[in-house]
């Protein structure tokens, strides 16, 4: 176990260096000059432009800039935003809870609905319910996320007026963030209706972000379940005279969950990607929206720092999933 942990963490080091290099290069490959963008429409004199370029260090060769960036990263310094002059790490930490809250809710939706849907489709294999569930899952998987989000906003928020269009909480409420998670903070604030408002704001983004993972989880559960239901040990369980609920819900599902857990873990990486779109559409103040805005402004240090932090989090999540695998699959003991 300890040995495996060391090996896996050791493997993360080259991945980490690769991530710093890619995040550094990606933003510089984009056309556009951060200094000119900062100047806005009025532009600036050549002399001032050169001075700013020198101030930010952009007049030096790339390799020098990269080494300096890497040196900073190793000391825990990701630089500061050109626009706000706030350290990147600090901005990230303020915004990250919003993304985590949204992603967790989306993942919760995907598992709580996706796993039962997959199980039901598997035991009703080939019948109407199976085709219906899997057809819906395919539609959910293939649908463009932005279109789905806009449709939901138009119908649910616009026509029915059931949910707010954007943001994390109504402007009526204001309190200092404690945990950064709106659901918890709104409860802690003790303000009447704050929690309800936070929930209402979460509903549509959760559905939009959760749709693809939901479809993936449902389809994966169905196929894992179908495979497991044909196994000898399921027949043994039935030969014991157990109820169908116990045979499917305990003996079969326990085995089917092994591949499903891996899928859920992999989906977490996908969620961070999906969050960019969802957060932008719903004006959700998370890291997705933050990244998009920083790319538009060519805020180099924010983009490279943000990408790097996301990469690290995905790596850590994957490591945790691998370790969890040993808990749910008795055949793997580290």
């Amino acid at each position: 176990m300890i040995k495996l942990l060391f090996r896996r963490v050791g493997l993360m080091i080259p991945t980490f260096i690769g991530a710093t290099l890619l995040s550094f290069l990606f933003i510089r490959m984009l056309p556009g000059d951060p200094v000119l963008l900062m100047a806005g429409e009025r532009g600036m004199t050549d002399e001032r432009y050169q001075r700013l370029l020198h101030e930010f260090g952009f007049d030096r060769p790339y390799w020098q800039q990269y080494l300096e960036y890497l040196w900073g990263v190793l000391q825990g310094d990701l630089g500061e935003s050109f626009r706000t002059k706030v350290p990147v790490l600090q901005e990230f930490l303020t915004l990250f809870p919003a993304t985590v809250e949204l992603s967790l809710c989306a993942m919760l939706l995907a598992t709580v609905i996706g796993i039962p849907a997959g199980v039901i489709a598997a035991i009703r294999r080939g019948r109407a319910l199976d085709h219906g569930t899997m057809g819906t899952a395919l539609v959910g998987y293939s649908m463009p996320i932005f279109w789905w989000a806009l449709m939901l906003i138009i119908v649910v928020s616009g026509q029915w007026g059931l949910t707010p269009v954007s943001g994390r909480i109504s402007l009526l409420y204001f309190f200092e963030p404690v945990t950064g998670f709106m659901l918890i903070d709104s409860l802690l604030s003790g303000q009447e209706g704050a929690f309800g408002s936070a929930v209402q704001h979460l509903i549509l983004p959760t559905i939009v972000l959760g749709t693809i993972p939901l479809a993936v989880v449902a389809r994966q559960t169905r196929s894992a379940m179908l495979e497991v239901l044909g196994e000898d040990y399921v027949r043994t369980a039935r030969a014991k005279g157990l109820s169908p609920f116990r045979v499917v819900g305990i003996h079969a599902l326990r085995n089917a969950l092994i591949p499903v857990t891996t899928t859920i873990g992999l989906q977490i990486g996908v969620l961070f990607g999906g969050a960019i779109l969802t957060e932008t559409i719903f004006a959700w103040p998370g890291i997705g929206k933050w990244m998009i805005e920083s790319v538009s402004a060519r805020d180099y240090s924010v983009v490279q720092g943000g990408l790097l932090l996301i990469a690290v989090i995905v790596m850590v999540v994957n490591l945790m999933v691998d370790l969890m695998y040993g808990l749910i699959n008795p055949k793997i003991r580290y």
Partner: peptide
């Protein structure tokens, strides 16, 4: 009602012992 009989008064064992037991329990 059949489930009250099988596994109790009437039981069965199978050909493949390695796959007939649930690997997760």
């Amino acid at each position: 009602d059949r489930r009250k009989v099988i596994g109790k008064d009437m039981a069965m064992i199978f050909q493949e012992p390695m796959t007939s037991l649930n690997p997760c329990f």
